Simulated assay, not measured.
Amino acid sequence: MKWQELDRENCSLARAMAVVGDRWTLLVLREAFLRVRRFDDFQERLGIARRVLTERLKHLVDHGVLEKVAYSQTPLRHEYRLTEKGLALYPVIISLVHWGDAYYAGKKGPPVLHRHQACGHDFRSVLTCSECGEALDPREVSPHAGPGARKGDWAERLTD
């Protein structure tokens, strides 16, 4: 499997990685979730080369994760907003942040906490079963081939 061919794999993770799988893209998304929208603000906060940022933003727009919206006509200026597809990445991003907090935050603790506005409490991400609501433990999950598995694919080799 080659990095440039991930989008052609019959694997949802590989296809997702083709869209969001490089470090700059994940950091651009972090900033988007922190409500950064304008090119110069992304560039200033990330310290990323303008060419690299331009490529990452275009890639996310091309894949429908961000949308480019004009906020000024004279001169023409755009900002980048998360789409519904982009907002759906929130559980992924917050889970990575909280994983980093657990294993890499340092002795003083996490640099940023996340507060649920509805209840007013800081929270930690927890993955739960959509059917019974219980917290999921990877040792208690069994993958099996889905309707998109193809003959000869790795997914076909999964057993119940």
Rank of each mutant, 00 (worst) to 15 (best):
D101L: 00
D101R: 07
D101Y: 06
A102D: 14
A102T: 07
A102H: 11
Y103D: 04
Y103W: 12
Y103R: 12
Y103A: 00
Y104F: 15
A105K: 11
A105I: 01
G106Q: 03
G106P: 01
G106N: 01
G106L: 02
K107V: 04
K107R: 12
K108F: 02
K108N: 06
K108E: 12
K108R: 13
G109L: 02
G109M: 03
G109Q: 04
G109D: 02
P110M: 10
P110K: 15
P110E: 14
P111C: 05
P111A: 11
P111K: 12
L113F: 04
H114G: 03
H114S: 09
H114Y: 15
H114K: 09
R115Y: 02
R115H: 02
R115P: 04
R115K: 14
H116N: 15
H116G: 01
H116W: 11
Q117L: 15
Q117S: 15
A118I: 00
A118F: 08
A118G: 08
A118D: 13
A118H: 09
C119K: 08
C119S: 15
C119I: 08
G120R: 05
G120I: 00
H121I: 01
H121M: 08
D122E: 14
D122N: 11
F123T: 02
R124Y: 10
R124W: 12
S125C: 06
S125P: 11
V126D: 07
V126N: 08
V126A: 10
V126R: 13
V126L: 09
L127N: 03
L127D: 06
L127I: 08
L127F: 12
L127A: 08
T128E: 12
T128V: 13
T128M: 09
C129W: 05
C129M: 04
C129V: 00
S130H: 06
S130Q: 09
S130C: 04
E131Y: 06
E131L: 11
C132T: 02
C132G: 03
G133I: 01
G133V: 00
G133Y: 01
G133F: 01
